[in-house]
Design a binder for these strands. Structure first.
Lengths: 230, 230
DNA sequence: TTTCGTCAAGAGCACTGCTCTCGGTTTTGA
DNA sequence: TCAAAACCGAGAGCAGTGCTCTTGACGAAA
């Protein structure tokens, strides 16, 4: 373990600064960020950026990866800082954390969950961080079943579907009855829809009390799952 | 009512052809469609397009309006062609119609429900057509209550939220108890999330039986709403 | 028939992502 | 220690973009 050379350190600093400037541009200009513009902001020439990122898409990928990690951190931290036995409280905390992060970083959220950039294909590095929020959510269900706080209803899925969802459980590394996992996925799907609707402004020019609406909607899904209050 | 002049007719034809070519480009290149490319495809020069659409955003707006109407037509037709008393069947039919349209026109769906184009602000003409799918869905609930097939649970929303949702009911012109409308909105939100996840490919490289998964997920929301089978 | 509105074409501007070359600096290894 | 290799920023240049403006031709209306 040798200390990184001076050159490597300034290089890492440059990469961080480029990403920071790019994030700033992202917030104002949306997904079509201009390499030349960030280069200008850094007092550089556009071609110099290519020393650090081989293409614009690679810069976007780096930003996407960072954003996934930040969102995953926020959701996991919110869940972790809630009483383990309070399943419903954990659910609400995780959902609120995702929403708060999205409201604080709308452009980055759009990058993660908006329509995919046309030519751009997300590399495989992104799938693991992308799964952290849903894994956290279904992890609450897993803990609930393990602790006996969440009784599996005994409901069974019809067959082509049951094994599909069972495979999904294996992929997410959660040991859950398929029917319950399906309900958890419904909650995750609705959470994404809620945030997207609020952020992309398609819904509710009315609905001024958005916090209350959000909590109620996520509470409905907690009901559907059967999460008990503390 | 005079017959439109020849000139007006060829002009209308040109507008239609431009939109058709643009839709084709949209399908392959995504949201960043090039005016010059569609002009090339039509054997024209880019500046000629501006005789018909004052800017690229106006072309996009026209495509968006058409897409909203097409999606609205599909959802409403599916609902209308189902036995009025079969609330659950109508719900499933409307949801399936939305999904089918989205799968058949992924680029246009992304235009409607993906991340908003940065500089672009949707004009007010779009809000009415955009509301047709959710209005159709909550219309099923309204019919159910009116026909006595869907019993309001008597559940009441806490106050800041209750009047918000009541206002939303007035805006959507559906006479529904707020608590029930909130559940309907949850269903609409989840439907959007389901389609987006499937279309934008973030979810389930596994889950090969997507039709069954979709039906089960929308069925869960029908359960949450309390829609009875036929 | 003449005038007026419409049309396609072309040149041009400012911008984009990206490539390549050219000097200058830093790190590396013999 | 010193030359070779790697790295870095600047600049020119290419192909493409949205958009504006001007020019000349055509058809419909007065």
């Amino acid at each position: 373990m040798v200390a990184p050379s001076l050159r490597a350190r300034v290089r890492a600093g440059m990469i961080d600064e480029i990403k920071a400037v790019a994030r700033r541009h992202l917030a104002t200009d949306g997904a079509n960020l201009s390499l030349r513009a960030v280069a200008r902001d850094m007092g550089m020439v556009s071609s110099a950026i290519y020393r650090y990122f081989p293409s614009r898409d690679d810069l976007l990928t780096a930003l996407i990866l960072d954003a996934y990690e930040a969102l995953g951190d926020a959701v996991e931290a919110a869940d972790a800082s809630t009483d383990r036995a309070d399943l419903r409280g954990r659910w609400h905390a995780a959902c609120r954390a995702a929403r708060s992060w999205a409201l604080a970083h709308p452009a980055e959220y759009a990058l993660l969950y908006g329509s995919p950039v046309p030519g751009y294909a997300a590399p495989d590095d992104t799938v693991a961080p992308a799964q952290r929020p849903p894994v956290t959510l279904v992890g609450i269900l897993r803990d609930g079943v393990a602790a006996g706080l969440l009784a599996p209803s005994g409901e069974e899925l019809p067959e082509p579907l049951r094994s599909d969802v069972a495979e999904l459980a294996a992929l997410l590394a959660v040991d859950l009855p398929p029917a319950l996992l399906a309900r958890g996925m419904a909650g995750w799907t609705q959470l994404f829809g809620l945030i997207s609707f609020e952020l992309f402004g398609r819904i509710n020019r009315t609905l001024p009390h958005r916090d209350e609406y959000f909590d109620h909607q996520t509470g409905l899904m907690a009901d559907l799952i059967g999460l008990p209050a503390a």
